[in-house]
């Protein structure tokens, strides 16, 4: 895992601070650490998000690498979930949200007019804070995505997709005899793994996780964390979390956000052992947050 920092590009840290026009608003803070990685899956450059009058994210630039888990940490309201929701344009469903800047997926601008949101969301899946299985059977929950995207030609193929997805999510052994029971009848941890299986079933490149364990008990959390580590072999994963231990356990890189600014990015080891910025240090040593 520490290999990451060695291979990190030596290119100069991106200038993220821009002069604020008008000057009434505080200038965005400059990000400490290297936001870019070689050969990224997704890149964000100078992303700003406004919810009506509220400036939720200021000039954030950040890359997501292949086969890595990047953790986004920071106090509540710092904009980490907002950035996450920008990555698959789920902010589009909020009428007041305005997103500026560039976000690319495999070099393609996802906010471009030609970009089909439906396709994008199939490639950038999302797992939510609270497990939200549909009020359908376990099978139908997983088959939902493949069905709407026409991924399976017939029932056998669909069965196969459902089975592999549930296996990858580590849920198959527990539910294989009750695929026709409602997904809402599972336990909280099982529901969350069902939601992960549902996301995997569409075959995404990136999986976004918004505090996926905050509604779960420690045992279920440990299972999900193991799962995240396994999933890294096939997907890039962005995880927002309030638990610093979790960030330290599952991620290779960590990004620290503070009041809409991206303060510091770096390898997880670095951030937790030797933070450069005083705000990062304050947060991880528990002085605030």
């Amino acid at each position: 895992m520490a290999v990451e920092s060695k291979t990190q590009s030596r290119s100069a840290a991106l200038e993220t601070a821009t002069a604020a026009a008008g000057g009434s608003e505080p200038t965005a803070r400059r990000t400490v650490g290297d936001v870019s990685v070689p050969n990224p899956v997704m890149t964000c450059r100078q992303v700003n998000v406004h919810y009506g009058d509220k400036h939720a994210i200021r000039d954030v630039s950040l890359d997501v690498a292949h086969n890595e888990v990047i953790a986004m940490i920071g106090p509540s309201g710092c904009g980490k979930s907002t950035l996450l929701r920008c990555l698959n344009r789920l902010n589009d469903t909020i009428p007041t949200a305005v997103v500026t800047g560039t976000i690319t997926l495999d070099g393609q601008d996802i906010y471009e007019r030609r970009q089909d949101v439906v396709q994008l969301r199939a490639r950038v899946g999302m797992v939510f804070q609270k497990p939200n299985p549909f009020p359908k059977s376990v099978y139908e929950n997983v088959a939902y995505g493949p069905r709407i995207h026409g991924l399976a030609a017939d029932r056998t193929e669909l069965d196969e997709i459902v089975q592999t997805s549930l296996q990858r999510a580590g849920l198959w052994e527990e539910v294989k005899d009750r695929l026709d029971q409602p997904g809402t009848a599972l336990s909280g941890g099982q529901q969350q793994r069902l939601c992960i299986a549902r996301t995997i079933a569409v075959g995404p490149e990136v999986i976004l996780m918004d505090e996926p364990c905050s509604a779960l008990d420690p045992i279920a959390t440990a299972r999900i964390e193991d799962l995240i580590d396994e999933l890294r072999q096939n997907y890039a994963i962005c995880i927002v979390t309030h638990s610093m231990q979790q960030a330290a356990r599952v991620s290779q890189r960590t990004a620290y956000f503070h009041l809409g600014d991206l303060i510091e990015v770096g390898s997880t080891d670095m951030i937790f052992t030797n933070p450069k910025h005083r705000l990062t240090e304050g947060y991880i040593t528990g002085r605030f947050g």
């Binding site: 698959n88 939510f128 995207h149 549902r198």
Partner: peptide, 15 residues
């Protein structure tokens, strides 16, 4: 119907 249901569906790329 909770918004989380819709989010879940949109998140999977449903129209």
């Amino acid at each position: 119907v909770p918004q989380s249901m819709r989010d879940g569906s949109y998140g999977l790329g449903a129209t």
